[in-house]
Design a binder for these strands. Structure first.
Length: 343
DNA sequence: ATAAATGATTCTAA
DNA sequence: TTAGAATCATTTAT
């Protein structure tokens, strides 16, 4: 009841009425002499106050009558104003939406991955860049790449359909609530501003759902990326020639099998692989050789023989025909010319 | 089908 | 940063 009297007090004040004490029958009598508007409002307020005491049918009828009253719009706006000041101002202030950094992050990532961005161009470009960064060979990278793109498109499609579903549900629900509030605003003070606020609340709720969707989409993309960009998954053995070059260097520098940066570059060029692949190879070779020297003994002997034969061939300068019994594979275009025969 | 080989990655420590 | 070690995921050999 306290609220009601507060509202009524505010109403009369704002409405330019001098007598706030409408509950007092005396004041009503006094108002009757003050002119039509005051008397109307006093009437209306009394009817509103009494409406809860009436039966449902009576109340319904009364509601209708009040609704059609010519003072209704003015009263309504004033009541709304009061409600605004009393109820809504209490919690309405701190609800300014800060640009959520979390959702910004997700948005940025989805955009970067080409999920939420422009249709085909961005996605394929991103995928191509990723594939290129992974250092895949150009032939199979296009195959892998199309596969990657297909999966990414699938994710994007799911993402968009889900997003659309949520947006539709959100707008449906918003509409429903708005209609409800508009309907109710005929009988209780609900300002457009309040409806707006309610809509904002609904949108916040739905955007948190959207954030979950974005998060799971991001996860899916990350998994996809790790699957396709992990070079372990599309490993190809080096060709025989490259392996020979590497082994030759390794076994001819067995006492110190750590090629310098320049040596690595040269080996990389000779083998048609990258410098980091050369580094990987030597890293693996060293540890595996050390772990089981016995197992590599045969290989070591073979390459020792091979370098000796090559050296002999170089010194003999091809004046004689090569013996067909050489253990290495035929057609070795660039014999190892390592000038530093350290061992 | 299973084991071995192999290139790549990840982690730790220097 | 780099080497070493462990491990992964794939290819090749059995």
């Amino acid at each position: 009841m306290d609220d009601q009297t507060r509202m009524l007090t505010g109403l009369t004040g704002l409405g330019g009425l001098s007598q706030p004490d409408v509950g007092d029958p005396d004041s009503v009598r006094k108002q009757q002499s003050l002119g039509q508007p005051q008397q109307d409002i006093g009437d209306i307020l009394q009817q509103i106050m009494a409406i809860t005491d009436e039966s449902l049918d009576e109340a319904q009828a009364r509601k209708h009558a009040l609704n059609c009253h010519r003072m209704k719009p003015a009263l309504f706006s004033v009541l709304c104003e009061i409600k605004e000041k009393t109820v809504l101002s209490i919690r309405g202030v701190q609800e300014e939406d800060p640009p959520d950094p979390q959702i910004m992050r997700l948005d940025n990532m989805l955009l970067a991955e080409g999920v939420s961005g422009p249709e085909k161009g961005g996605g394929s470009a991103a995928a191509a860049a990723a594939a290129a960064a992974a250092g895949g060979s150009p032939t199979d990278s296009s195959i892998e790449h199309s596969d990657y793109r297909a999966k990414l498109a699938q994710i994007r499609q799911i993402y968009h359909s889900e997003l659309e579903k949520y947006e539709q549900a959100c707008s449906e629900f918003t509409n429903h609530v708005m209609n409800l509030l508009r309907e109710q605003s005929r009988t209780r003070p609900i300002s457009p501003k309040e409806i707006e606020r309610m809509v904002a609340i609904i949108h916040r709720k739905f955007s948190s759902i959207q954030m979950q969707l974005k998060q799971s989409t991001c996860e899916a993309v990350m998994i996809l990326r790790s699957r396709f960009l992990d070079a372990r998954r599309k490993r190809r053995n080096f060709n025989k020639q490259a392996t020979e070059v590497l082994n030759e260097y390794f076994y001819s520098h067995l006492s110190n099998p750590y090629p310098s940066e320049e040596a690595k570059e040269e080996l990389a060029k000779k083998c048609g692989i990258t410098v980091s692949q050369v580094s990987n190879w030597f890293g693996n070779k060293r540890i595996r050789y050390k772990k089981n020297i016995g197992k590599f003994q045969e290989e070591a002997n073979l390459y020792a023989v091979k370098t000796a034969v090559d050296a002999a061939n170089v010194s003999a300068q091809a004046s004689q025909a090569n013996s067909p019994a050489t253990p290495n594979s035929g057609g070795y275009p660039a014999p190892c010319y390592t000038p530093d025969g350290r061992l």
